[in-house]
């Protein structure tokens, strides 16, 4: 019984607590921020830079099957999708679909 629960205890400590502790600190910090405060500008900037750093790493250094694909194909697909998104008046589906089609097309044509 105890042995069966061990991996769950492991996940609860090294996963659950390790992530939720930051969410709870975020609530305590955010509760002190006024909506129009200068500090909130900084918090927004740091949150966005952190998320975009993680996102860009997923494109430049992917894991799984894409890890073997050429970098230029991934950059062309992401950049082309973003350009199409801007040209289409910032329509999100246009950007996503263009990027996916470019990626699939280039992977098939240039194996």
């Amino acid at each position: 019984m105890i042995a069966e629960l061990k991996p769950y205890l492991f996940i609860a400590l090294a996963g659950w607590i390790a992530t939720d502790i930051w969410r709870w600190l975020g609530v305590l910090a955010g509760n002190r921020l006024r909506e129009d405060s200068e500090a909130l500008y900084w918090v927004r900037a740091v949150a966005t830079a952190l998320v975009m750093a993680v996102t860009a790493k997923l494109i430049v250094f992917p894991t799984g099957t894409l890890a073997a694909s050429p970098l230029w194909i991934r950059l062309t697909a992401a950049g082309g999708g973003f350009a199409a998104f801007l040209l289409a008046g910032q329509r999100i589906p246009v950007g996503v679909i263009t990027a996916i089609l470019l990626l699939a097309g280039l992977l098939v044509l240039m194996p």
Partner: peptide
């Protein structure tokens, strides 16, 4: 494991803090 996960999750703090107000 705890250190690897918690380092990757620091972004949660500013993300949550920016939407709470």
């Amino acid at each position: 494991c705890f250190i690897a996960v918690t380092l990757s999750s620091v972004r949660m703090m500013p993300m949550v803090a920016s939407i709470v107000p």
